[in-house]
Structure formats: structure tokens, C-alpha cells
């Protein structure tokens, strides 16, 4: 892979006394969707939070577009062009949907074409623009969280389990929206337990276990090989959905 957008080499992260990431090596190529799979507790969310600077790596190197970003403050990483959609619908519930969107628009004003594209992608954003985000349903909050991350063009979007806790119809809508986002110039690093969604969107895949990346390759290869899935992800039920 020539000149990847993001590379993690030998990254270790501790949370309190726990050694969560134990030498993660991860490569995210430019463009397309890279999926991070693995059972619960494998360290997927911790990897995203470490990239975002919310957790400081204790060892190892993180490079974004060739620049070292490990240990940089979160706001600087965000301004460098990485957006983060945390697990559990990270919206500001006291603010309205519109205010949530405005917060992410660092240029001050919205790009009208982009905003109408987002509103078409996620219709509830337009419908509930004036409503406090706290009053939205789970699926709508998730849409708002993704919409907020893409209101301005970003080079890399980290999305943590967008399908978690959502009704199947909303998962389908979310998959379609992310598929459309993939067609734009954005690179996505997606953590997902829903294998159907992961395989529909993913170009490349990395599988984590016990704080390390244990497999990296093409998504198509993993999707077509049930034995490999079984071996890599064990008895995790979600992956068979």
C-alpha cells in the first residue's frame, strides 16, 4: 500500500492499571472504508479514542498523512481533519439539532450545497432542526452524530459502531448513507460488530483481538471465507447477523 493516510505502529495504550492496546499495527489507505472488527473488549473503541487523542498512547507511533499525531491534544487532531463519531450517539442533548450542526461548522457558516446533501442523506436532520437533540430517537441521534461529523469535508472519519442498538430499518438507512459518503472524497475507519453492514461497506478489514491486530486484508476475501471468519472472530454471535 503506497502512502497510507493513517498508520499506527506498535501502539500501546493504558487505561488506569489496564493495558488495553498491546502493540497495535494498523494501516488505513487513502479513500474507501476500512473496517475494524473484533469481539467485545478487543480494543477497537480504545484504538479510535487513541487516534483521536482522547487517550494518550504510552508507546508507539501514530502518523496521519505522514505527520506524527500521537500525544497531540484532541482539538488539534480534530482541526487536522479527523472527525470522530463516538459510540452511543455523541450529541449535545441540551442544544438543538441546528446548534449541534453549527458547532461542527468551524468555518462559521454552512456550505449550502453540502447541508442540503446531508439533509437529503438524513431527512430527520431537516425535520427536527429546531428541536433539542435530547428529544430525538436513538436512530436520529446517530444520524445527527454522523451528520455533524461530515458537515465540513474531513479527510478521515472515525465511526464507532453506528448500528449499535438501532432497529434493522434504520441500520439499512445508515448503511446506505455511509455508502453514499464513501463515494465522496472521504476516508472512513469504521468499527462495527454488524457483519452485514461491515461487509457491505468495507474495502479493507483489520481484525483485533486482545489489544492487537491479528489479521489485515481485503474485506471481500474475509466475506467469502466462512472458515476464516470463524477462526478470527470466534463465537461472537453478532458477526453472523
Amino acid at each position: 500500500m503506497a502512502d497510507p493516510l493513517l498508520t499506527l505502529s506498535g501502539v500501546h495504550t493504558h487505561i488506569g492499571p489496564y493495558h488495553i492496546l498491546q502493540g497495535v499495527d494498523l494501516v488505513v489507505p487513502r479513500g474507501g472504508v476500512s473496517v475494524l472488527l473484533g469481539r467485545n473488549g478487543a480494543g477497537k473503541s480504545t484504538t479510535l479514542r487513541t487516534i483521536m487523542g482522547l487517550l494518550k498512547p504510552s508507546r508507539g507511533e501514530i502518523r496521519f498523512d505522514g505527520r506524527l499525531i500521537g500525544g497531540t491534544p484532541t482539538p488539534a487532531i480534530s482541526r487536522a481533519g479527523i472527525a470522530y463519531v463516538p459510540e452511543n450517539m455523541g450529541v449535545f442533548s441540551d442544544l438543538t439539532v441546528g446548534e449541534n450542526m453549527q458547532l461542527a461548522a468551524t468555518q462559521g457558516a454552512f456550505d449550502a450545497t453540502r447541508l442540503s446533501w446531508i439533509k437529503a442523506l438524513f431527512p430527520p436532520i431537516a425535520t427536527f432542526w429546531e428541536k433539542p437533540a435530547g428529544t430525538l430517537s436513538g436512530g436520529q441521534k446517530q444520524m445527527l452524530a454522523v451528520a455533524r461529523a461530515i458537515i465540513e469535508p474531513r479527510r478521515l472519519i472515525l465511526i464507532d459502531e453506528p448500528s449499535k442498538g438501532l432497529a434493522p430499518a434504520i441500520v439499512t438507512a445508515m448503511t446506505r448513507a455511509l455508502g453514499e459518503l464513501k463515494e465522496t472524497d472521504t476516508t472512513i475507519l469504521l468499527v462495527e460488530q454488524n457483519f452485514a453492514m461491515a461487509s457491505a461497506l468495507g474495502d479493507t478489514v483489520s481484525v483485533m483481538d486482545d489489544g492487537r491486530v491479528v489479521h489485515a486484508g481485503d474485506m471481500a476475501e474475509l466475506s467469502g471465507d466462512a472458515g476464516m471468519q470463524e477462526r478470527l472472530m470466534g463465537l461472537s454471535l453478532e458477526v453472523h447477523q
Binding site: 491534544p73 484532541t74 480534530s78 482541526r79 455523541g90 449535545f92 441540551d94 446548534e99 458547532l103 461542527a104
Partner: peptide, 23 residues
Amino acid sequence: SPFGRTLKAVRDNAFRAEAIGYR
């Protein structure tokens, strides 16, 4: 103002505010 809106976001959840680029 936009400043006040950011204050409310900080009150709501400081980590999320950091993650979208606010110190």
C-alpha cells in the same frame, strides 16, 4: 453567540466538545 453555544456544548459533554475541535 457562537461562543455561548460552545459553552453549552462544553457543559453538556466536555469530551465531545474536544473531539469536534474545541479547546
